[in-house]
């Protein structure tokens, strides 16, 4: 996983498929995953997903990192179901969890964030009539991506300032100055945007 995102660069057909098509396929597959009747069909679907990971040439290490958290949860849930509802049900519930999360993870691994941003912007076009402006949505998303490291740096600043003054106060003593700095940054950003004619 890179610092920029979960995307795994590659050149497989899955990587090259258009993002919108992948999202559509994912939605249909997720709906289908819920309808799988028994442990055998869930197992077969899991094998297909594993095959797709191999087809996209996702290294085992990356695939493992992607699925490990849900595997842990699935184990817990499966163990819990085993007592209440029997082995078959436990396998289906746990398997469906792993199936749907790993399938969604595969789309994320093989699709650039920028391409998904484009899908969001295009998806907003039909919403024009209720006052949603796709260009402004894209602008806000870009600004938000930029704001993450900025606000992270502000948290660092506040921590250091507190350490320098010997303040060891709780969460409130940390969060108030952080919020004040964050709002100031937002205000400057807003003025800069207005100055560039965003409101015109």
């Amino acid at each position: 996983m890179s610092a920029l995102g979960v995307y795994l660069p590659g050149d497989s057909p899955l990587h090259r498929a258009p993002a919108g098509a992948k999202l559509l396929g994912l939605t249909l597959a997720e709906a289908g995953a819920v309808l799988l009747p028994g442990p055998w069909s869930v197992g077969a679907a899991l094998a297909v997903v594993a095959g797709l990971y191999a087809f996209a040439r996702v290294p085992f290490r990356v695939a493992w990192a992607q699925t490990r958290p849900i595997l842990l949860i699935a184990l817990l849930v499966g163990g819990f179901q085993m007592f209440g509802a029997g082995v078959d049900r436990a396998l289906v519930v746990a398997g469906q969890l792993v199936l749907s999360v790993s399938l969604a993870g595969l789309v994320t691994l093989t699709t650039r964030s920028a391409d998904l941003l484009d899908v969001i912007e295009r998806g907003c076009r039909p919403l024009r009539f209720v006052g949603v402006d796709g260009a402004r949505v894209a602008l806000v998303l870009a600004l938000a991506i930029r704001a993450v490291p900025v606000v992270a740096a502000l948290t660092q600043e506040v921590r250091e300032a507190q350490r320098a003054r010997g303040v060891t106060g709780g969460l409130t003593a940390f969060a108030v100055p952080l919020l004040v700095r964050t709002l100031r940054y937002a205000d400057n950003l807003g003025e800069a945007l207005a100055a560039r004619g965003v409101d015109d």
Partner: peptide, 21 residues
């Protein structure tokens, strides 16, 4: 429910950044 002014866009974006941070 029409267009959000620049200042609101900035506040929304920066708060999304805050939640992330």
């Amino acid at each position: 429910g029409r267009r959000l002014p620049a200042r609101d866009l900035a506040l929304i974006a920066v708060f999304a950044g805050l939640i992330a941070a």
